[in-house]
Computed example of a mutant assay.
Amino acid sequence: MESVKRIGVVGTGLIGKGLIMALENDPSFDLSRILTRREIDSMIGFPSAGKLTNDVDELIDNSDLIVECSGDVLYGTDVIDRAIRASLPVVTMNSELQVTTGSYFARRGFITEAEGDQPGCLAALHENVLQMGFKPLVYGNVKGFLKLDPQPDEMEYWSNRNGTSLEMTTSFTDGTKVQIEQVFVANGLGAGIAADGLLGPLSEDAHSGGVHLAERAKEAGCAISDYILSPKTPPGVFITAEIDSRHKDALRYYKMGEGPYYTMLVNYHLCHLEILKTIRRVFSGGGVLLNNGTHPRISAAAVAKRDLYPGHAIRRGIGSFDVRGIAVEIAAHSEHVPIGLLSDAVVVRPVREGQMLTFADVELPNSLALRAWLEIKEEALYAPSR
């Protein structure tokens, strides 16, 4: 009889807590340990509280697979490094980590993003449309609202109302989250970007926005990763693709429109609930759903939201009121600082509002994440083409 697989969870925020409750209800898995940085005595009433630990070794020793959903790039990188060294497969719900250090781990072991967040859902949709014979042109994300420089008071209001952290709420609102997600999709699915910061056209619906982006993809000569700003479209993901024109009459009958571009929309993503599908995929030998690739071409650069002066400390870049993230090509902006690395960073040169931060502008603490990025960048810029 096959033994029940032991699942270790890293992170006790919104996603981690939801996954823990889902695992409690699934007898095919054993929730083994939950790694947290919080004081365990303060977490009275937390689900499966008896499995909480602050000890990475305890997590590793009692798990057959690790799910990393801490939302923290530097901390998550350290934990995943331990898991990979122990030859454990790693599933993430952490696009921020994937676009910063994921490629470092993709060369060393098994790491995949889960379905549930937009990149994983796009990867699953990608597999589906390829099997039907479509050729993707646009890997699209649907965003309903965008404000590049939201203020603290409004973000605190929405954070409290939605039960999400202030940083998470801010990164959703200022576009950092969608930029990171589409960087990840571009690298993982072999697409490009049409412009720094993406295009993000205002669209009535997913199909009209997808057609607009598909035309830009045809001009670029490659599939692109981007998003639409569409307040009336449900949150989700879509792929706009082309197919053998002999299917045109049938696709018209199937209410897919006149072509030549067709849009497949998934109008939901259920985050922690869908992680279970990816865990099953891994154990059944289904392989990587999505990772950042071993040789990424796109990154998420930090851009100043306001003038920054020497001595200013950036505690955490993602979700801050100091910087936001935009998608860029690594080769064109080789000295940019990935926004995921801005943790306890100190500004050392004046940076003007709207300026992209470079490594000469900030002092970063030494970390595995920093060393991993420098290796990734070296490969991206100087490795022979493959």
Rank of each mutant, 00 (worst) to 15 (best):
A191Y: 12
L97F: 03
I80Q: 01
S171D: 11
V138K: 00
D196L: 06
E127S: 15
A327H: 01
L342M: 06
E242V: 11
E58C: 14
G200S: 10
G140Q: 11
D81S: 13
L189G: 06
K218W: 07
P150A: 12
P201A: 09
R161P: 04
M1S: 14
L364D: 00
A49G: 03
E219V: 06
E181I: 03
G163S: 14
A206E: 12
A186L: 06
E127M: 14
V10G: 09
R161L: 15
E96F: 06
P201E: 14
L364C: 00
S299F: 05
S385A: 14
L374T: 02
R306S: 11
L166N: 04
K305C: 12
G259R: 11
H333Y: 05
K51N: 15
T176R: 03
G71R: 01
F110V: 03
C271M: 13
M43Q: 05
L199K: 10
H272Q: 10
P260D: 04
D149G: 04
C121R: 00
V211S: 15
V4M: 15
H269P: 07
A223F: 04
R252V: 14
D81Q: 13
P365S: 07
I318G: 00
A313C: 05
L368H: 05
I228G: 01
I279K: 02
E274L: 02
I326Q: 03
L122R: 06
I318M: 09
L342C: 13
N162P: 00
R316F: 08
G163L: 13
H247T: 02
L52Q: 07
K17C: 14
E58D: 15
H272Y: 15
V183F: 12
S87F: 09
S208N: 10
G236Y: 08
I224W: 04
R107N: 13
P152R: 07
G144L: 10
V79S: 05
V10I: 13
S367A: 05
P27Y: 00
L125G: 03
I60H: 10
A214K: 02
R108W: 01
L19E: 01
L19T: 05
T36N: 07
Y309N: 05
R161V: 13
V237T: 09
P231C: 02
M264G: 01
D81N: 15
R324A: 06
L74K: 13
T100W: 02
P234W: 00
E24I: 04
E96L: 03
F145W: 07
L213N: 06
G76K: 08
V178M: 08
I180Q: 01
R108T: 03
T12R: 04
V337D: 01
S171V: 04
D322P: 07
M168C: 07
V9N: 10
V362M: 00
G287K: 12
L251S: 04
S42Q: 10
N160K: 15
T240G: 03
K147A: 03
A114Q: 11
L276I: 12
S70W: 00
H207Q: 15
L65Y: 00
A83W: 05
V323T: 02
A360N: 14
E215N: 15
A106P: 14
R6M: 10
